[in-house]
């Protein structure tokens, strides 16, 4: 009898550790909606960088136009 009790206890304890193995993710942060703050900030940086590239692209186009007129 005692053997079985120990066995059941061990199985239960292994289940308990199994439940603890749930991987920790940023669920709280997500549920609070703070992840949108991160996306907004990085989005702004991305837009800034791309905007900078677009302006640079236009400047080079203008320069090319000027040069082709001079030729």
């Amino acid at each position: 009898m005692r053997k079985y009790l120990i066995l059941i206890f061990l199985i239960l304890s292994s289940l308990a550790t199994y439940a603890q193995e749930k991987v920790e993710m940023a669920d709280t942060m997500r549920s609070e909606g703070k992840i949108y703050v991160v996306v907004a900030i990085l989005g702004l940086i991305l837009f800034g960088l791309i905007g900078y590239l677009v302006v640079l692209d236009k400047k080079v186009s203008k320069l090319e136009k000027k040069l082709s007129e001079k030729k």
Partner: peptide, 10 residues
Amino acid sequence: LVYTLIAGFL
């Protein structure tokens, strides 16, 4: 890239 940012985080 915009899609990557949004989908990548959400």
